[in-house]
Amino acid sequence: MKRTVPLMIVMVGGILMMLQYFIPHQYSQVIFNNYLEWAPIVGAFALILGVGSLTRLHTHKIRRKAKNWQYSWAVLIPLFGMPLFGLIIPQSLGGGSDVHGVHDFLFMHIQVPIQSTMFSLLAFYIASAAFRAFRAKSALATILLLAAVIVMLGQVPIGDVFGRWLPNTGLWILRYPNLAAKRAIMLGVGFGMLATNLKIIFGVERNWLGGAGK
């Protein structure tokens, strides 16, 4: 029963959604929109579970004095401090979510810079990854290196110094060999999705219910 009911829901829902794609009638649209509206509602309840999970994990760490348990305070304090300032503490005491409040100050001066820092790390990681990828250790790696040099130089103004052939060749690599490979992957992905969806809808794949499909 514990498995049959979810499987039935998935099967009925999955088939309905498949049929819905071909039925533009308003009744079909109403069903589809209802499904879409349910998703954020379920998500909102799941978020409570998520916050509960994070709290449980870090309180366990603090209670057990596990390795690096001090860092858990760095999670728990902002986790409850931000909603406290944003929702509970009155505006007269610096609460609320307006631009002069503590909540906004913490968000703009701690959260945003930290996120920007993390994102900016990407530039350095790309450089190191490119260095590793473009080492000409084999014939294929050398071809990759050459293609990369042509494409990169073709994208920047300095590429024109060598003549129009360089940007044109770079564009050709992007438009034909590169696009062909991308489309081949996307085609495989499309069929993979189709097969996975069918396996789930018809109960062939039950791993998502928990367990290894037994």
Binding site: L49, S53, L54, L57, Q111, Q115, M118
Partner: peptide, 10 residues
């Protein structure tokens, strides 16, 4: 198994 955050870079 735990929930971490819904912010990408966090």
């Amino acid at each position: 198994v735990f929930f971490l955050t819904q912010s990408q870079f966090a």
